[in-house]
Write a protein that binds this DNA or RNA. Structure first.
Lengths: 107, 107
DNA sequence: TTGATAGGCAAGTGAATGCTTGCCTATGCT
DNA sequence: AGCATAGGCAAGCATTCACTTGCCTATCAA
């Protein structure tokens, strides 16, 4: 059940609770490896989200802490990639309780 | 994509964001059709959650608004049942972007 | 009818959260 | 070197949120 390298389910759920963060995930789904500025302009252009660069940066930090986004630095650029792995465990938590019965959870 | 009778994805994600509410879903998974008091005592006994009856009631209201819990009244009792249907749509949002491309979402 | 049980409504409080603004560091171009 | 670009840090503010307390309604049993 190895959450995700120290990332607990709580972080994932909290990260998904915000609509702007979900939109960011949508954008990263559409195009992987975007930089902060690229994400900023897409949120502004495509989604009419008037949010500061700092705001987006904070959202990305939350997503990264939840393991939903991974980053790699190249020079002065920092690219953001989606990681859907943490979503799997949360999706299968309640659907069809398995024969093994309810084991210890992380509330 | 017919969310769930007026329930938007936002309600579902917000509902799942709280650890106590997730524990309630766990309990309803284990035993369906519990009353408010039954849920209260289970949270207290099994999970050491010192929360007032009113607090639990409010959590249940949030879960019901999200479509994750359905209720039926019988006399002075109100039974709570789990409904995992809203979970399906949220689970399949980011995993594997389909060939149809990204369609309109509800952020 | 009286009393106990199951639940609901509403206001108040403290903590968490989303967002902004201002300033600072690092990399790259000319 | 000098300047622009990409990003980070930190304090401040306003709203939301979880939770409590107090009181009220409805159903059932004696």
């Amino acid at each position: 059940m190895l959450a995700y390298a120290g990332v607990v389910a709580d972080d994932v759920f909290k990260a998904l609770a915000d609509p702007t963060r979900r939109t960011i995930l949508d954008e990263l789904t559409e195009k992987s490896g975007q930089t902060l500025f690229e994400i900023c302009s897409r949120l502004s252009m495509k989604h009419q989200l008037g949010i500061s660069r700092q705001g987006v940066s904070q959202h990305l930090a939350v997503l990264e802490a939840a393991g939903l986004v991974e980053t790699r630095r190249e020079g002065r650029y920092k690219f953001h990639d989606l990681n859907t792995a943490p979503l799997r465990q949360i999706a299968e938590r309640w659907v069809v309780p398995h024969a093994s019965g309810p084991q210890e959870r992380t509330p």
